[in-house]
Design a binder for these strands. Structure first.
Lengths: 240, 240
DNA sequence: TCGCGCCGTGACCATTCGGTGACATTCGGC
DNA sequence: GCCGAATGTCACCGAATGGTCACGGCGCGA
């Protein structure tokens, strides 16, 4: 994908709704493709990659759950946002079980739809960073070297580190704002998403883990600095 | 709107809070309008455009969710930042699903509030290809250099300084009014915000700390001047 | 099914900040 | 020059915040 922004595939049999959704996604700057049924969608996905699939549940032929299932069993992990006519909670569970990432009942508010799209892409964007900036795929600071694509790092002392997903995401957000203050709330929203609510102490814990991994003296951090009462600040150069 | 910077509408029934928020937004350089309830807000928005709506959830008459809902159904996509008394996570979701863009629980830190406003407007600017510069991020005076984004400074003697939140904010307010007299009450209002009332002696203390950090001779200040019986005045050039 | 690893939380303790009061000092008016 | 009031300065205390650890739950893979 050579586009600066990730592409979205909309699978929806109602042409009017499909057009409206596509329109709004384009307005957000995403390239959009549309399909009218599940078979077409699977065929398209056989030849294209995309960043998000917006998938109606009620489709002619294969339903959305089946499409998602088929994708997942092919090893395709593209995030899926289900749309459904009913608001039945059981459907939500079915959707999530089928491997979907989020679920929205029709009729939905456009704003809410876009919000969820943004949330999902924010969550997944960084996974497929290969297509984003290559520069941020590898981070170097204070003798440490982190490869975000593999969640792998080599610490300053040569020790190999396997980062967990959350550790990597937090580090990434901090590094993207190197030198700036990032509040715990910002971190929570960027890493966990807008609708998940761990306590802010959880953030502290991950900072602690990052310090243990990458600071020469975790008690006197030079890269992961605390900004009292506000949040944290990452410095790649190292504090004096 | 003839101003180069986008306007902000504050919808808040507590006049004191409204004044504090408005004051701080103006200090950031945004034109600000305020409304005391939802009906007024909708009426105002019928005739004006703005870049951001800061919307209290608990309002007399229509609550904030309803206001936001009404706006969205009119096709108005102006970003909304909700303020609420409760920190209930469910409220956050409600706010976001009502079409809000962000959400802040009272009592909030001014710093956090401003961070979020900036974040939202950055997004807004982005979509409109505008290039509004954020408020001055770096301040230089008398050989000192202060980075407000990081609460960090290098003093005239080369010494690195880590400012606290309050120190940074006081310095920022003073610097924004360089050459003008700023009363202690002004500083309290702008730095401490809407629901805290320390004595004016507290302000003196912070002036003292700033002098120690940045004046070559703290006892004979050239930048942080006392205006007897009124307040303080900051000079970036240095007094004779 | 069992273990293992990740992650979220609560508890406990150390640290920091901020606000105040006391005292010294300076200022301005008389 | 004197006096009252405002400010400079310092040290202290309480509260809020962060550091750190250990535990429990959950999901995943063997």
């Amino acid at each position: 994908m050579n586009s600066a922004r990730p592409a979205v595939l909309v699978v929806e049999d109602d042409p009017h709704l499909a057009a409206g959704v596509a329109e709004n996604l384009r307005a957000e700057g995403y390239p959009v493709a549309t399909c009218g049924d599940g078979e077409q969608a699977l065929a398209w996905l056989g030849g294209h990659a995309c960043a998000l699939i917006v998938l109606d549940v009620m489709l002619p032929g294969m339903d959305g759950f089946a499409v998602c299932h088929a994708l997942r069993s092919q090893g395709n992990n593209t995030p899926v946002l289900f749309l459904t006519a009913r608001g039945d909670p059981a459907d939500r569970v079915r959707g999530l079980e089928a491997g979907g990432d989020d679920y929205l009942a029709k009729p939905f508010h456009l704003q809410e739809f876009l919000l969820r799209v943004r949330a999902i892409l924010r969550r997944w964007d960084w996974y497929r960073n290969a297509s984003a900036t290559a520069a941020t795929a590898v981070l170097r600071f204070g003798g440490n070297e982190v490869d975000f694509r593999a969640f792998r790092a080599r610490a300053w002392n040569g020790e190999a580190q396997e980062l967990t997903e959350k550790e990597a995401m937090i580090l990434k957000v901090l590094a993207e704002h190197a030198g700036e203050i990032v509040s715990r709330e910002d971190l929570l929203e960027r890493v966990w998403g807008y609708d998940v609510f761990p306590s802010t102490r959880t953030v502290d814990n991950f900072i602690l883990r990052l310090r243990k991994r990458f600071e020469q003296d975790p008690a006197n951090p030079r890269h992961f600095l605390t900004v009292w009462g506000v949040g944290y600040r990452f410095l790649s150069e190292g504090a004096p």
